[in-house]
Each structure stands twice: as C-alpha cells, then as structure tokens.
Design a protein around this nucleic acid. Structure first.
Lengths: 230, 230
DNA sequence: CGTAGCCTTGAAGGTGATCAATGTTTGTGG
DNA sequence: CCACAAACATTGATCACCTTCAAGGCTACG
C-alpha cells in the first residue's frame, strides 16, 4: 500500500473524516503528498504563496508570525488531526498568514489547493465540520484573551494545562510536544527569563519536570489550583 | 412593507448576501424578528441557551465574557453586517459563549436557530462565506496576539485605528461606535487608569478628541507613526 | 573545537497596577 | 424638574511584576 493510501486510512479515524469512505477520501485528497518533517523543519513560511493546505497526521507544528518588533510570536500549537491553512483557501491568491514549523518528528498530508475548490468546497457537510474547528479556535482564542488580566503565573499554568488536554487518548502527564522555554515565552508574549523563573520554581516544588524539552505536569491538580482566586 | 421585509432588502447590500434574491432571503430568514436595542441593552447573555443567531443591521455590539477574576473582558466589537452566534449553531444544545450588549442605538435581525440547520447549513456557498468571516476573525485575533509584546501605547493606537477602519464607506475621523474608557480598557485587558493616562496625553497633543463617548482620531497619521519602531 | 542556540541567575529599571480621593455625567424616581 | 444614586472620568502616590541588561554554563552540531 502506498504511503498516501495508508495516510487516508489514518485520517479516517479523525473526527473530521469519520463516516467517509476510502473512495471519498481519495477524491478529496487526490494528488496529495506526505511531508515527513524533522524537528524544527519549516513546512511553509509566512508570506509565501499558499499552494497547498492539509492535515497533520502525527506530531505537532507551531504556527508563528513576526510581531512589530521583528521577533516571532507563536499564535497556536497544532497537533495531529488539525487542519492547516484551510481557512485561507477561499481567497483568490492565498498567501500563508503564518509560518508552520515542526515540533518533534511530524508528518503532514499536503493537499493541493485546487482540491479545495473542486471537492472540499462542494461538500457542505465537510465545510460545516471545518467551521466547527474554526469556531473552537475562536472560542479558545477568546478564552486566552479573557486570561490577559491574570498574572503570568496563571497564564502559564493555563497554557500548560491546555496543551496537556490536547493529548489524544491516554492521560499521561507528559505534554504531547517538545517545547523550549523560549517557545512558551513566544506563545505567551513575554520574555524567556520570566517563563524560566516561574518554571524553575515549579520544578523545585515538584510541580513539573523537564526531560529533553519534554515537559511533564507532575501535579495537575496543583496547577488547576493556581487558576483559582489569587 | 413590514419591518422584516425592509430588513431583508437591507441585508442584501451586505457582502454575505449579495446575489441573493428576496425570495431566497425570505427562506433563510423565515420567522425572523427585529430587535431594536437602545444603548447598553443586552441582546443575549453568556450561558443562556442560544435559540437565535442573526445579523447586525445597524449600530454596534460589544461581545464580552467574564474573566477568572469576575470582571468582564471584551473579546470583540461587532458592527453592521456582522453575524453573531452563527459559529455555535452547529452544536446540539448551543449556549451563548459571550454576552452581547448594544453600543449606541442598534438593530439586530434575530433568526431562529432552526433556520440554521434547515436552510443555512444546506447552502454550501453561504457556509463557505461565513467561513470567510470566521477566518478573518481568527486572523485579526492573531494580529492582536502579535501585538501583545508591544507597549500599551502601541496597542491602544492599533485598537483605535482598527476600529476606525471598520467604518463602512466614508472616511470620517470619528469611530463608528460610542466607547467609554472603561470599555477600551476591558478590550485591551488593562486598567481604566492606564487607558485614561494615555488618552489624556493624546487629547492634550491634539491627536484625539472625545465628544459624548464618540472618539475622533484627529491625526491618524500620527497614530500610525506610533506603531513604527519604538 | 568553536559557534550557535538554549538555559539560568542576578541586579536594576520601568511600565502598568493598585489604592485613594474627587469631579463629572447619566439615569431613575419622586 | 429636582434629588439622588450609580457609573464613568480623572489625578496623584506608591508598589509589584515583568522587562531589560549582563554574564556564564550547557548542549548540539558543523
């Protein structure tokens, strides 16, 4: 079986494509290719013409864009099952609004842009489900915004807990993606030093542990406690 | 002509419904009603079962949700032509994720929830256009996030400029909605005092003027200048 | 073996928060 | 129409959190 064929079987387990037959998937993903990305490999870059969108098969990607001052800001951590760049496929000459970089070894199913107009757009049910994904993104961005008045300690706790919840299946205590302190800082919009100071405190208190960029939340209940009234 | 009928003519000028005949609109908006809201009137409240969604005919609404500490955070300022609550209509028992409050006298076309499943969802092209709206929301939330590392002065300038750009048509210097300093603070996630200090500076320098909660940007070029390198 | 990127720690500084007091506008009911 | 309450606006003083700057250690990789 070709790699793409087996990928199609793989995505049929994702919520988005449940109930789709292999034939239907073959149509939707005609001409697709699989990108095998190593850690830190860039999938696409902000500003580049968008000639493909697609689905994360495994691993994770950080989605970032440059801020006014030039340094990068991470807007989202995308994990297996997430769709990337679908939201701009509607435009006549789409350009990636963000840069996608692999976090850990990852696999991505690249679907040619034409498929969107030819097949995806015609499938009201699929568009509808994608809308559901977009809605959830908006709601979680709102939640994040509501946390802006909280202390950095609370925002950091909320961030790690949210990442832990992304975990598909088993409830291990390890975050499903490798993360540097710098990346966490870029995600929260603060400096590395601030993140480090809080996380080393937590390490000393046994709340978290880091092993080769893999972060584990040893005491999630305690982290949740931090989110309660200051 | 009934008020609803004239509203249907009104919305046919919005980008979302261009090319729709009155008959089609009558089908999509069957059973709709018009809410005439006065300043500060609440259209729906967070947590309340969502039995309608709809379109802002005129005026504006602030969309807010309570933060951890209890005070409200404004997640979006919605203006004429915006769709509210469409993104949660897909759920089986939707509940409003935010509170919508009128800013200035406003009119809203309330469409019953059933219409979404019966008619809107079936219209692939419409769902597709709504997806376009959602995409733009996500992109602008990303832009906002990229500004989180900037100083409050810059974020405030960006906020006012973005609101000025929402203006449909004429390029007056007055923001299209009445805003208190407190609301701006709730939108930016900072305290009223900080907003006031910056805005009184700008008032003294002649950059802005306030008249009965109507803010005017007298020198937009200067505001844009503030967004350049610190 | 040298460089580049990440991690860590400390000291100093600034931005925005907090607290407090007062003035102003808006809305409500007698 | 006035009295009063409630919400908003303003200002100053003080404080805390987070940033900035600086220096050094660690690991990965050519």
């Amino acid at each position: 079986m070709s790699p793409v064929e087996s990928a199609l079987q793989e995505i049929s387990t994702f919520a988005l494509f449940r109930n789709y037959s292999q034939d239907q998937l073959r149509l939707l993903c005609g001409g697709a290719a699989i990108s095998i990305c190593s850690h830190r490999q860039v999938l696409f870059t902000v500003g580049q013409p968008a000639d493909f969108f697609g689905i994360i098969l495994s691993g994770a990607f950080k989605l970032s864009k440059p801020s006014l001052e030039g340094q990068d800001v991470i807007v989202h951590f995308a994990t297996a099952g997430d769709i990337l760049a679908a939201l701009i496929m509607a435009q006549p000459h789409p350009v990636y609004p963000i840069t996608a970089t692999a976090l850990g070894p990852s696999r991505f199913l690249k679907v040619p842009r034409e498929n969107f107009k030819l097949h995806w757009k015609k499938d009201a049910d699929l568009i509808f489900k994608i809308q559901g994904l977009l809605s959830r993104r908006i709601l979680s961005l709102h939640d994040e915004k509501a946390l802006m008045t909280a202390s950095l300690k609370q925002r950091l706790a909320a961030c790690l807990l949210a990442l832990l919840e992304k975990q598909t299946g088993s409830k291990s205590l390890e975050l499903p993606l490798p993360l540097t302190r710098k990346e966490i800082a870029e995600y929260l919009g603060v400096t590395v030093e601030s993140v480090i100071r809080i996380m080393s405190d937590w390490s000393k208190q046994g709340l978290i542990a880091t092993n080769d960029q893999q972060i584990s939340l040893l005491r999630p209940e305690m982290m949740i406690e931090l989110l309660k009234v200051p």
